[in-house]
Amino acid sequence: MRATTRLPRQAVIAGATLIALVVLAALAPVISPFAFDALDLAHRRAGPSVSHWFGTDELGRDLLTRVLFGARVSLAVGFVSAAVSVLLGVAIGATAGWTGRWIDAVLMRITDAMLAIPRLPLLMIAAAILAPNVAVLVLLVGAAGWMETARVVRAEVQSIKANDFVTAARAVGAASSRVVVRHVLPGVLPTAAVATTLAVGRGILLESALSFFGVGVQPPAASWGNMLYQAQTTMTSEPWLGIFPGALIFLTVLCCNTLGTALTER
């Protein structure tokens, strides 16, 4: 029994890598070789070297340091927006699945509508209009990602609702809210866990795309996406400025998706 529930090796590696990234980001002020905005004017636009592992930018700032600090913003946006998405998705999906009738119909039409509007352009316009700080950006990205979770949770709540233990709980007079919280929602937890893992990756990708188009995280704050935004014009002369932040986005999202896929298949 234990052996069958163990995660596959690549999922363990992915999880360990994610934890390592979070720890590195959290410790960025302690472990990074240079200060976040320290200028080294003698070594501007320098390629990767022993002293600057990832090279330096046009002001001589150390790229490894900036990538570590950027990780704090990118990972925070990923994790918090995922929490927002999944909480919204569970709330909306559970309400629709539990109450049924017209509330269900209205909520599901709104879900369909949100799914039909292309997510990235929608977020780009919203971000351009609101010119958000990082906190609002997190809410925006989260608010654009609840639909898939809501659909799955609705279906699960509908099937859990038909179980005898739910009928029994209602028969002994448990309030509707108590039945939902104590008996229905625990059954939705595995789905919510998978959705969260996948939503972290999607949130990081969306933030990076928004920042890449100049409507996400604004300088002087650094996120992996806005580092790419600043690097794209000098991609031919200083390719490292774009390659490293993008590679970290790729690595992080890859870990989230590997973990999420492994959890789905269990």
Binding site: I249, V253, L254
Partner: peptide, 10 residues
């Protein structure tokens, strides 16, 4: 998982 714009740049 790959960021589309980064893949394009690379």
């Amino acid at each position: 998982s790959v960021p589309v714009f980064w893949l394009g740049l690379v």
